[in-house]
Simulated assay, not measured.
Amino acid sequence: IVVNSFVETDDRIMESGNHSMVFKFILAGLSEQPKLQLPLFLLFLGIYVVTVVGNLGMITLILLSSPLHTPMYFFLSSLSFIDLCHSTVITPKMLANFLVEKNIISYPECMTQLYFFLVFAIAECHMLAAMAYDRYVAICNPLRYSVIMSHHLCFWLTVVVYTLGFIGSSIHTGYMLRLFFCRTNVINHYFCDLFPLLELSCSSIYINELLVLFLSAFNILMPSLAILTSYIFIITSILRIRSTEGRYKAFSTCSSHILAVSIFFGSAAFMYLQPSSISSMDQGKVSSVFYTIVVPMLNPLIYSLRNKDVKSAMKNILNKRGHT
């Protein structure tokens, strides 16, 4: 067998034997229409600024305000950190796509982006489930809440959340590194995601697709079922409350979490819980915008605007700053 090797003039593809190794990818982005590039850039730049300010503000507020040093806000600060990292992995490179003719990303950068995107996406799924469990204990077992939701349990739940994120991401990325890419180097997406990359492979992707379906079912369906189960018990418990004010207060503490969960899991399930042959990449892009860009921006707004404790803590800190 004669093995021929050469590198193209643009240094994007090296062909070796029967396979081509792509060294650089081109991200197609959200839209190829020139008129939309600047408006989209300004829109997503504004979203990213709100995301960074909102999540950093939430983390800082929870750290500085002692009344918010509770399990609920510990998980909320962890969620804000995940959202901040999740958005930062995706958005800056996406913004560059609106300013350059070809948004080039190297193979190592692409795999790194894929790895950390999956870490924080999977971690967010399980963090939302941990938050649902916290609400379940708070409403269904209020007298034992401080005993059950101890600092020790909160710490280990958070460790498990991140561990699942790193394990799931390592499996996906590890099997992605085994593939050869030879069909084209244009990724029909605004970041390095699983399905768009699998479309470019000239290797067998059977195992990769099985892993996507299996791990997506585990990381999306399992937390969703845990959240659903928690809220069935929560709603049952709330309906037993006799006072209207008590019911309203209990529902208000859960409504923000339900809204955040619905948007995140709905858009993620649409992208990952169906075969890639059925999923349209153009529809996938729109779905991806929600869980990679919109949700990280909305979460701090949802939890702050609909939460009296957060508003009160913010007023107290601002008043202290005003007096000093």
Rank of each mutant, 00 (worst) to 15 (best):
L213C: 02
L213M: 14
F214W: 03
L215P: 02
S216D: 05
F218R: 00
F218S: 01
I220R: 01
L221E: 00
S224V: 06
L225R: 01
A226H: 04
I227R: 06
L228F: 12
Y231L: 02
I232F: 14
F233G: 01
I234W: 00
T236I: 06
L239D: 10
L239G: 06
L239V: 09
I241C: 02
S243M: 08
S243R: 08
E245P: 00
E245S: 12
E245Q: 14
E245N: 14
G246F: 03
Y248P: 01
A250Y: 09
F251W: 15
S255Y: 07
S255I: 10
S255F: 10
H257V: 00
I258Q: 05
L259H: 03
A260L: 11
V261K: 02
V261C: 11
V261A: 08
S262D: 04
I263A: 13
F265N: 04
G266F: 07
S267I: 08
A268I: 04
A269K: 01
M271F: 15
Y272P: 01
L273P: 11
L273F: 06
P275E: 12
S277C: 05
I278Y: 15
S279I: 04
S280L: 13
S280Q: 13
S280K: 12
S280A: 11
D282N: 09
Q283V: 13
G284E: 07
K285S: 00
V286H: 05
S287K: 06
S288T: 10
S288N: 09
S288K: 04
M297P: 09
L298D: 03
